[in-house]
Amino acid sequence: MSASDALFEPRKQRRALVARLFHAACVLITGGAVVVLGVLLYRVWHDGSELLSLEFLDRFPSQITPEKAGVKSALWGTVWLIGLTAAVAIPTGVGAAVYLQEYAPRNAFTRLIQLNIANLAGVPSIVYGLLGLAVFVRWLRFDRSVLSGSLTMSLLILPVVIIASREAIAAVPNSIREAAFALGATRWQTVRHHVLPAAAPGILTGVILSMARAMGETAPLIMIGALTYIRFVPGGTHEAAPGLAGWVGWFGEAIRDPFVVLPIQIFNWAEQAQPIFHKLAAAGIVVLLTVMLILNGAAVVLRAFWQRKQP
């Protein structure tokens, strides 16, 4: 018996009990979430599996023969939208984060910008739709095109990309920067070779989350007028002339095409009265979830590859 025993009251049983209770609560909550998700997936699969087939992916939607309808235009619309959004938002967002974190002077102006970005992340998506309608559709005359949609989506997810990237960059220990600078590195060499690789997993997580959001968003696209019954895919009605210039021309035409995306297509089907459309909606949801799964899977593989490549 040491003298300190009188001063400490370990209450080990109570502490162990609290620990066990907390553990149980965590398991319960996680389990509950998984069960709810499982039920939802089952319902969707149950309703949609009947119509799901490879042809479903390769048929255009149809009002007149819904049993022969498919998601081709919506699937390709989503692919184009996500591709263009990623091409615009990732470099801009990561670039802005690098600037704010590594280059910008720490003054009131920078703080104001940071505060604004945080606020923008909380602005309702419909507001971005209005902005897109005013700026891209009307003012810049991009019309109701996949380009307008992507730019609007880019604005929508940019704050999230910037914030997530900044967090990831800020988490890179300063000692690594000091090590690089002490070897006579420039700021760019330090950022390029050490800060960005170390922050890449965190940046990727933020990017994936925002891409998933962009894929599921409907409101801003309805606002800028992504149509519903479209019987072609972006670029599908143009011929690419041979050579790089021809391809670029085709691309320029394609991004000006009207488009529809999966969530809008699903929303439209779900609105119809006949039960067949509800089955189409369910099948569309399965397609959307699969695309998201593929995207997330790709991110996981990419991240693992990066981490293995690090040394």
């Binding site: 690594i176 000091e178 050490h194 690090q310 040394p311």
Partner: peptide, 27 residues
């Protein structure tokens, strides 16, 4: 940058880059 190339530094806490041993020295 020229100065730091001629005046090297070793820090209190070891701070190797999270890279290979070779890359640490070669970089």
């Amino acid at each position: 940058i020229d100065l730091r190339r001629s005046v090297g530094m070793v820090f209190q806490k070891p701070n190797p880059f999270p890279k290979s041993i070779y890359r640490n020295v070669a970089w």
